[in-house]
């Protein structure tokens, strides 16, 4: 494992911990899109089908359990926990995420590395993760004052995949036959979707002003 990959996983872990911290301690999910959280739970559920069949390393298994556990518990908090629900902005979190699931499933059935159930599900999770942030970005455009934890959550979530891109470049040049177009293109699309958020987030941080996204 190279430094970019480890940095990417740690950044992803931080984003999840920031969100869990926000929801678990201050019992608030203000500015957080339940749709994106549900999409991420689906991403992990379809990507880690091999968690009990293919053992890669303890690290790999532990991280998979953390991502599965955190994503499902965040969805549970936002759907079931009375106190957390009060801060959920239902009226603005209206992105029809079904419109994302079906095209990703169809695309996975058309373009994949092997036509097996696990491989198609894994490919579906790669495509779905690329677009899973859209409901969250749309909600941020509609949210007047974005609190720091929400901004940090989205920032780290976007940063992790860009670190993975560096990891893929590194592995491409150091490992023979390491070519995975599906992951690379999806990861690039995913990162590009954050481009404008990164711009506004970094400029709000530099000018020391509140983060607001133009509608």
């Amino acid at each position: 494992m190279n430094a970019f990959r480890l940095a990417g996983d740690m950044t992803h872990l931080i984003s999840v911990l920031v969100l869990l911290l926000k929801i678990h301690t201050i019992k608030s999910c203000a500015g957080i899109s339940l749709k994106t959280q549900e999409l991420y739970a689906l991403v992990f559920a379809t990507r880690y089908l091999d968690i009990f069949t293919d053992f890669i390393s303890l690290y790999n298994t532990v991280m998979k359990l953390i991502f599965l556990g955190s994503s499902f518990s965040i969805v549970w908090y936002m759907r079931r926990h009375k106190l957390v629900q009060r801060s959920y902005d239902k009226d603005h979190d209206t992105f029809r995420h079904q419109l994302l699931v079906l095209p990703c499933l169809i695309l996975a059935l058309l373009i994949h590395e092997q036509f097996t159930f696990k491989e198609v599900m894994w490919t579906f999770s790669i495509y779905l993760e690329a677009v899973a942030i859209l409901p969250q970005l749309v909600l941020l455009q509609r949210t007047r004052n974005i609190d720091n934890l929400t901004g940090q959550y989205v920032f780290f979530l976007g940063a992790y995949r860009s670190l993975y891109i560096l990891n893929w470049i590194y592995r491409y040049f150091t490992e023979p036959h390491y070519v995975h177009w599906i992951t690379w293109i999806s990861g690039l699309v995913q990162t590009l979707l954050y481009a404008d958020f990164f711009y506004y987030y970094i400029s709000s941080w530099k000018n020391n002003v509140k983060l607001t996204l133009p509608a």
């Binding site: 990959r5 996983d9 992803h12 091999d50 293919d54 890669i56 390393s57 790999n60 991280m63 998979k64 991502f67 590395e113 894994w122 993975y164 990891n167 995975h180 992951t183």
Partner: peptide
């Protein structure tokens, strides 16, 4: 045992 390497990422 040959580990199915290409799925070693998260």
């Amino acid at each position: 045992r040959y580990v199915y390497r290409s799925k070693d990422e998260l």
